[in-house]
């Protein structure tokens, strides 16, 4: 991969990788580290990307999510990846601003539900693209997305009430 090719890919996808990492980790410095490592990995081993298997976006999302999971493993912050039994409680809208409340709700989701939701809802990737990024079956991604949305509906339900009261 020439430097010009890499620069073009970097400029096209850097915001996407950074946003994804930021929403997954909730930390600007962690997101910057993950984005940096993700592009350095691409620069050092560009042959790992196979255009026949998916888009560059899905590839970079996959590299970034693996780096994030590795980071959590090292920091021993990794709980159950996909907790089917996870049942979200409604959040208290009086304690935080709406944006912060939404952020807390998304970040309280189990990691596999969170990554599926972030990629599908925020980054507007198709379910097939998400499945390629997380190296899973489409049906598994659909199930995770469904559970993530159900949990968020429950957690954020108090916000509707407070909006109606305004």
């Amino acid at each position: 991969m020439s430097k010009a090719d890499f620069t073009a890919i970097f400029r096209e996808h850097k915001d996407f990788v950074y946003r994804f990492a930021w929403r997954m980790t909730g930390s600007a410095s962690a997101a910057e580290d993950v984005a940096q490592d993700c592009f350095v990995a691409l620069l050092r081993a560009p042959e790992r990307f196979d255009a026949g298997r998916g888009t560059m976006r899905a590839f970079l999302a996959g590299v970034a999510r693996n780096l994030i999971l590795k980071r959590w493993r090292v920091e021993r912050r990794l709980g159950p990846l996909d907790d089917d039994a996870f049942l979200a409680e409604p959040l208290d809208p009086a304690r935080w601003e709406t944006a912060e409340l939404v952020g807390r709700a998304v970040q309280s989701l189990p990691p596999l539900q969170r990554e599926a939701l972030i990629l599908a809802e925020y980054e507007e990737m198709t379910v097939e693209e998400v499945a390629r990024a997380v190296d899973e079956e489409v049906s598994a991604v659909k199930a995770r997305l469904h559970r993530a949305r159900e949990n968020l509906r429950r957690m954020l339900a108090p916000l509707r009430k407070s909006t109606c009261n305004l």
């Binding site: 930021w22 910057e32 944006a99 952020g103 954020l156």
Partner: peptide, 24 residues
């Protein structure tokens, strides 16, 4: 009552990420 799809989508849009640092 839980939120419907549009309400949920609207609320999710409230959570915006910072700009990508130029030092990246």
């Amino acid at each position: 009552q839980p939120l419907d799809d549009d309400e949920l989508r609207g609320l999710l849009r409230e959570w915006r990420p910072p700009l990508t640092p130029s030092s990246l």
